[in-house]
Each structure stands twice: as structure tokens, then as C-alpha cells.
């Protein structure tokens, strides 16, 4: 039992299960999955599909946080990537042409990776603190997105583009497949090679890792580039899902959700050890919370309070220090035998 509860993924997983079960009680059909229009249909599928962009962004964020950094610009990169792809597609004569969509997607991803690279240079080469370095792009990036869209929503009508964030492949949401592939590749790269360990070393102690000969600068730039790329893919998904690039609102405050997902997943913001699986669970917890609010009909005025309370509880449960305190207090009255004189005294006095 202790081996199970002691596992670092136990608490995020437990929180997710409890949330899903609570939904089942309130909405009996919550777990039902049907096949409709040739694809899977149900609340659980919604959580996976709508949670896909957050899972990707949080994945990139985990790698950056592992190096002891943080990337606040991911929300802006989401907006830029979606804006560029939709702008390019909307300019084509045949919006449904697969090659045109592929070119647009490729360019958007190259730009996103370049923006991540830019962040990485600021952090690793120029030596600006990550929170400041990425704040620059966070503030300016949304302006860039609006520049691309000229301040309007760009609508696209392109079935191949729609596939990325709203389509289905083999009855599964395509976005979920993309996330699964990216997570699997990242997992292989960081856990089957020394890459993960090197990242953790940099996050744990940058100076020491430099002294043992790790080329930390390169790896840090790589981490930010990867994070930008992940945000870029997420931006494609978000704009594809609604077939619209919204420079004003796409990815707004998503950096905060991503950081929250990483924290709920059990990776410390101080850098060092990280867990990709935990981050995915964290992102699912956040998306499940949103879906729960919408399906159960929490009044919109108290939605934010409800979210805040749940997140606070989740973070407290996650904290080993908090758990230790609570469990010790609970354990104390049980520890002495029930008829101990001390306990009796207290009762009499009370």
C-alpha cells in the first residue's frame, strides 16, 4: 500500500480519478462513449480532445522548468502560430489543398520553434532571467499575432487543417494521437538517453553541471526551442478546432494553466527532477475541472472561486509537508489506547 501511495504519480492520479467519479455521480452519463458520425463521442473524449493543447504546452513547459527556467511566452506563441497558419491558408485559392496546408503548418511550426530559440538565446547566451526573457515575448507576441491577422478573426474553410485540432482518425481525435506521439517521442528522448538526466543536472545545479562538463547553454536553448515548438503545435490545434485564428484570445493566460499543470503533476518549479507523466495528468486534471464546471452547471459568477478552491485543495494534497502534518494530527489521537488516563482527563476538563 505504501509503495502505491508513495509513488510520485499517486496523488495527481488520485485527484483525477476522484474528479471523474464526482462527475459520474452528478451526471450519470458522464462515462458513456458512443460512436457518432463515425467517431467516438462522449465527455471523456472531449476532455482528451480539448485538453490536448494544454497537454502539449505543459509538456514543453516541464522540460523548461526542469532546467530551472520558466516560459511565460507560450500563450503568445499559440496565438502567433495559429494566426500565421490561418493567414497563409486563407490566402490560398484552394483552401482544401493538402500541400498548401502542409506548407502553412510547417512555416507556423518553424516560426514557433524560432521564437522558442529566441527565448533560449536570451536565457542561455545573454543571461537574462527566464521570467524576464520570456515576458518580453509574452507581451509583444500577442501584438505580433494581431499584426498578422490585422486585428480581425481570420476564418478558414479547410478540411485538412480542421483535422489537426477538430478531426478524427481511426475514430480517435487526431489531436490526441498527435499528443500521444509527441509525448512518446519526448519520453524516449529524455528517459532512454542521458538527455533527461542532463536537463535535471542543469536544473539542480547549473554551476556544478558546467564544472562536470555538461554543455548547459546548448541544452537550455534546446529546451526553450522545444517548448516553443510544442506551443506552436497547440496553437495550430486551437485555431483548427474552431477554424478561426483569434489573435486577441487564442492561448490567453494559457502559460499559467501550463505552469499549474506542471506543478499539479509533481515537478517542482525550482527545477531538477521532472515527470512527464505527472504533467499529462496535471493537464488532464485542469481540463476535467473545466468540463466539470460546464456539465454540472456551476453558476458563472462563482466559477473562478470554485476553480480556485479545487486547485488550492489539489496543491495542498500534493504537498508532502501538508500531508505529513494532517496525517500526523489524525494519527495522534489513535496512537494511545482509547482508555488512556490522559485522554480521560481532557474529557473531564472539557
Amino acid at each position: 500500500m505504501k509503495a502505491v501511495t508513495g509513488h510520485r504519480l499517486f496523488w495527481p492520479a488520485a485527484v483525477l480519478v476522484v474528479m471523474l467519479l464526482a462527475n459520474l455521480v452528478v451526471t450519470p452519463g458522464f462515462f458513456s462513449i458512443q460512436v457518432r458520425n463515425g467517431h467516438l463521442y462522449g465527455s471523456l473524449i472531449d476532455i482528451l480532445l480539448l485538453g490536448s493543447p494544454l497537454m502539449l504546452i505543459a509538456l514543453g513547459m516541464t522540460v523548461v522548468i526542469a532546467t530551472g527556467g520558466i516560459d511565460l511566452s507560450v500563450g503568445a506563441v499559440v496565438a502567433i502560430s495559429g494566426a500565421l497558419a490561418c493567414y497563409l491558408i486563407s490566402g490560398q485559392e484552394d483552401q482544401g489543398a493538402v500541400t498548401g496546408v502542409l506548407v502553412a503548418v510547417a512555416l507556423a511550426l518553424v516560426l514557433s520553434a524560432a521564437l522558442g530559440f529566441w527565448n533560449g538565446l536570451f536565457v542561455a547566451r545573454v543571461g537574462i532571467q527566464p521570467i524576464i526573457a520570456t515576458l518580453i515575448l509574452m507581451v509583444a507576441g500577442r501584438g505580433v499575432a494581431q499584426l498578422i491577422t490585422s486585428g480581425k478573426n481570420i476564418n478558414v474553410n479547410s478540411p485538412p487543417y480542421k483535422l489537426i485540432g477538430g478531426g478524427y482518425w481511426l475514430t480517435l481525435p487526431f489531436a490526441v494521437i498527435v499528443v500521444a506521439v509527441v509525448v512518446a517521442l519526448t519520453g524516449l528522448a529524455v528517459r532512454r538517453t542521458a538527455l533527461g538526466m542532463l536537463l535535471e543536472a542543469i536544473g539542480g545545479n547549473a554551476e556544478a553541471s558546467r564544472l562536470v562538463g555538461i554543455r548547459s547553454r546548448r541544452l537550455v536553448v534546446l529546451a526553450y526551442t522545444f517548448c516553443g515548438l510544442c506551443a506552436g503545435i497547440a496553437g495550430l490545434m486551437i485555431s483548427s478546432n474552431i477554424s478561426t485564428a483569434d489573435g486577441n484570445n487564442a492561448g490567453l493566460w494559457m502559460e499559467l494553466d501550463a505552469i499549474l499543470a506542471v506543478v499539479i503533476g509533481g515537478t517542482a518549479l525550482t527545477g531538477g527532477r521532472f515527470t512527464l507523466a505527472g504533467t499529462i495528468l496535471g493537464a488532464l486534471v485542469i481540463q476535467t475541472l473545466s468540463t466539470t464546471i460546464y456539465t454540472t452547471g456551476v453558476p458563472s459568477q462563482v466559477t473562478l472561486v470554485f476553480k480556485a478552491v479545487v486547485v488550492a485543495i489539489v496543491c495542498l494534497i500534493q504537498s508532502p509537508a501538508f500531508r505529513a502534518k494532517v496525517f500526523r494530527r489524525r494519527a495522534r489521537p489513535e496512537a494511545p489506547p482509547p482508555a488512556s488516563p490522559a485522554a480521560a482527563d481532557v474529557e473531564v476538563n472539557a
Binding site: T244, T295, S300
Partner: peptide, 23 residues
């Protein structure tokens, strides 16, 4: 029967409606 905020945006309008349709 249901009243939720979609924050005046397309993406949120879609997400909220998707969930409400299920419930």
C-alpha cells in the same frame, strides 16, 4: 436550464456548448 460564461470568444463558446450538450 444552463447558463455559463463563454467569455465572448469562439473557442470558449464551443468548449462550453460541447460540455452542455453532453449534460
Amino acid at each position: 436550464i444552463a447558463s455559463q460564461s463563454g467569455d465572448f470568444t469562439r473557442a470558449d463558446g464551443k468548449e462550453v456548448m460541447t460540455a452542455i450538450l453532453k449534460a
